[in-house]
Structures are given as C-alpha cells and as structure tokens.
Design a protein around this nucleic acid. Structure first.
Lengths: 252, 252
DNA sequence: GTGTGCGTTTGATATAGGTCAAAATCCCTG
DNA sequence: CAGGGATTTTGACCTATATCAAACGCACAC
C-alpha cells in the first residue's frame, strides 16, 4: 500500500473531475488573501480548474519538465529538491496546505527542481498563462502574484542565512519552530505534530548529515525541550528552543 | 577620498538630472531582453525616470525601508546582506551591471535586506507601482518581470545547494566560475578580473571564514589553477576549476 | 615620508560535525 | 505473524574548517 519513495517512478495523477472553487475553499486566506468582487472571484474559480491527487512518493513535477502551471497544495505535504549531476541532492523546501509551488519554472519554462509528495496529497492546478492573463485584468490578483513570488525570495534568503551562518543546533531549532508556526497558522497544534520527512531529508534541507539530525534531536530531548519518538514530536518549551537560536552560548 | 565602508552611514544619493533611456542603453539585452514596439519602448523609457549615483559604501536601501522601486544596476557593483539580530550577517548576493535588485521587498512592502555599493555605481530606479501598471498593458513586459522574479528564486536555490552540500573548495570554485561567466556575458575577460569584495564578504556569502577563503585561494594558486594577488584574480585553468566542483575526489 | 589601520596571509591548535559501524526499531510484504 | 528492507539511534573515531594569533603590506592621513 505504502510505496517506497524511490520506486514511484511514474507521475501517477488521479484526476478528480470535481471542480474546486477557490471561493469555497477554507485555505483561501492562506492561498489567495485578497479581496475580490464576486464576479472577479468567479473568474479566479474558472482559472483553477482541476484538482489532482498524488500518493506518497509521487512526483508533482520533475526537474526539466515543461512548465505549465503553478500548484496550490490543498491537502498533504511535499518536498522540493534540486539534484546536482554527481548525485548530490539538496532539499530546498517542505510545502504544506495553502502553499504554492512551481515558481522556479517561470524563468526558463522548465522546472528547476523536483517536487515529491511526502504523503497523499491534493493539489489545485493553476495554468500560468491564464493566471497572467487574468492578473492583467485584476490588479489585486497581479499584486498578489508578485507578493507570492517575492515571499519565496525572502524565504530563500532566510535559508541562506541559516545554512551560511548557523550551527547545527540552531538550524534544527529554527526548523522545528518554523514547522510549529506553520501548523499553528493552519489551526493545528503548534507543539505537537508529525514529521512527514525522514531524518535524511531534514538533514539535506539543513545542510547536515542524518546522524547529526538524530543526535541533535536526542540532545534537545535530553534538555527537555522536546519529546520525540520516531516521527512524532512534541515541543515542550518553545521559548527554550528560541534561546537555542542565537550566537554560541558563551554565557550560561 | 575613498571612504571606509562602515562609515558611509547616510544614503548619499546624487541625482543626475539626465534622463536615461532604456531604448538607448547598452545593457538592454541583459536587463530588458524582450521585443517591444517603438511606442511601447517609449512607455518603458518613461517609467525608468532617474539615474542615481552611489559611492562605494553607500546603501542603496536598508532592511526595513519602505519599498518604492526596483533598481537596475547600470554600472558598478553591489552586495546584498541580511542581518540576524545577534549581529551575524549573511551576504546573499553580489550584483553587477544589468542586474535588478530589490525584489525581496515586494512581499511585505519593506526591504528584507541591505544593498550596499562595493564601488561607485549608477542605478536606474523603477517605481514598482508604475511597473505593475505598465505590465498590465504590455504582456511581454509582464512576462519579463515574472521571469526576473523566478530567476532570482532559481539562483537562490542554487546557493542553497552550494551552502548545503558542497565543501569549501567546491564553493569557492563555483564562485569564481560564476563571476567569470558573468563578466564574460558583459564583454569582459572571463579569466582576469578584480574582486570587488573582501575575503570576509566572500566568506560570508559562501558560508566560510575569511581565513578559509584565503587559504583555499592560496591552495588554488598552488595548484596553478589561478593567480591571485590582493583583489586581482586570473583564472589560468577554467576546466581545472570545473573539476574541483564535484564529489570529493576519491580517485586521483 | 611616516604612521595608522584595515585587509590579507599563514601557522598552530581546537572542535563541530562527518564518517563508519553496529544494533534497535519500525513497517511493509508475503 | 514472520521476514526483510528502511529508518533511526548511538558509539568511536576522524577530518574539514573554525579559532586564535602573529606578521605583513598596502592605502590613506598627516
């Protein structure tokens, strides 16, 4: 039933004929947080035609694939990764419901990374040509698209800061706090959640080896900051994690 | 005459009343590589009103400053950096003529990083509101704006790969090859150029300490790959540098 | 010209995190 | 429910890079 990630080779897309309406979507505040008239909203609904289902391990898109659309995650969890020819890979992000992915592909009309479902997921497809067209007519949609693109740039800069100037403990604390905050935004517990990714994927994202991820998590547990058992984490002391993030503790 | 970087505190902007026309700019192929009718081009010329001059050490913008415009670098060299409250800084990029910066600010209407001139520079200002307006009328301009934003995302992903999974030698080789390629694109020698930034800034960008930058450069010189004296570099063996970039040489 | 300071180089030493290995646990498959 | 691969944990050891320190040199100021 549950496929091993590496073996899901083909892009197995289950088309759900069901039309999804943004106007009725409970993620709208995350995905399209702008005010539109009813008539304009209908045009947006028109744009986002199909909802596709992906199983754990499926590719949403592959590096090199022709760019067609942006994707809004409706449910589920994805990772994006870039591959270096010599086999090295770098996870560039983990995406959850309400987030939009695929923007790397606009610049060259081909995707620059892979996007892979880490659990069974549903995705709304946003044909980019039509999005551009509509955003020419709706300034607030245009503005929103620009914000989303820019937000991605800012996010990436934050990761550069993380990878370029933080120690392993700090990176992991930032990572946990970031997940916490994103779950909170979605109405889930900020202190208790399941990690959808492996230690190896966390490590790739944070620029460290899986053993170091595991050791550091154990260390946090030893300090009483978190409880972790396999993939379920409990953050027992958010402000304690916050204080980990900071320059090397010379005091204390 | 030549100010120390840290002391140029105020944003000293010299307004050049001269109107600059994109239509006549020799950087157009880098900055606006798209075909427009003469009439449309005039509208773009209209948009990009003023050319400002900055001296070495001047801030083009600061983190937190209100977002007004994107900036196209006409001549000169900038760095962008993000600061963590605890004083740590991360250089997020080095920008040269024909490149556009400031896109981080769109998402929140405030700049998320600092941009600082590393040499005397001239910059074209592109008021963003008017750019959005015009891009609603000119689909090819709209498309171009989207490409530029997306290109920045792809660039950042490349840096994440670099910071997250390459060794110091590889990072520095990638850095030198990237500069080489960008100078080549601008019609300068790909094998002989001046570094505008300090070892410390290179180190910040590449996630390593200045001493490691210096040692690694010396090492490359020892291998005959480059010649370096202070800030002037000569790349003697581009393909040799290429082979440095790759998984840890187990063979050889 | 001489002094001062920043940037750079180089050396000696320390350490965070990587590597290798083994055991424990989990989870899917048959 | 037994078997086997994948994932995780933990330990022992190693290395790439950081840290600390000293000396040098160039650029600018006086």
């Amino acid at each position: 039933m549950r496929p091993k990630l590496k073996e899901n080779v083909q892009k197995s897309v289950t088309l759900t004929p069901l039309r999804v309406a943004c106007s009725g979507c409970n993620l709208r505040e995350l995905c399209l947080p702008m005010k539109l008239s009813i008539a304009d909203m209908e045009q947006v609904d028109d744009l986002i035609s199909l909802k596709h289902a992906y199983q754990r391990g499926d590719y949403l898109y592959r590096s090199g694939a022709k760019f067609q659309a942006l994707y809004a995650i409706r449910t589920g969890f994805f990772k994006t990764q870039v591959l270096h020819e010599d086999g090295r890979e770098q996870v560039t992000g983990f995406q959850m419901a309400g987030e939009i992915i695929g923007m790397d592909a606009i610049s060259s009309d081909a995707h620059a990374c892979d996007a892979i479902a880490l659990e069974d997921s549903e995705v709304c497809e946003i044909p980019f040509g039509r999005l551009e067209e509509l955003s020419r007519k709706l300034p607030s949609l245009q503005r929103h698209l620009h914000r989303i693109l820019s937000r991605e740039i800012v996010r990436d800069q934050g990761i550069m800061l993380l990878l370029g100037s933080m120690r392993a403990e700090e990176r992991l604390a930032v990572f946990l706090l970031n997940l916490s905050q994103r779950y909170a935004t979605r109405g889930y517990s900020p202190t208790s959640f399941h990690l959808r990714m492996t230690r190896q994927e966390i490590g790739s994202y944070l620029g460290m080896k899986l053993e170091t991820v595991s050791r550091t998590l154990s260390h946090f547990q030893g300090l009483g900051l978190i409880s972790i058992r396999k993939k379920s984490v409990e953050l027992n002391n958010l402000s304690g994690l916050q204080t980990i993030v900071g320059p090397p503790q010379q005091l204390l």
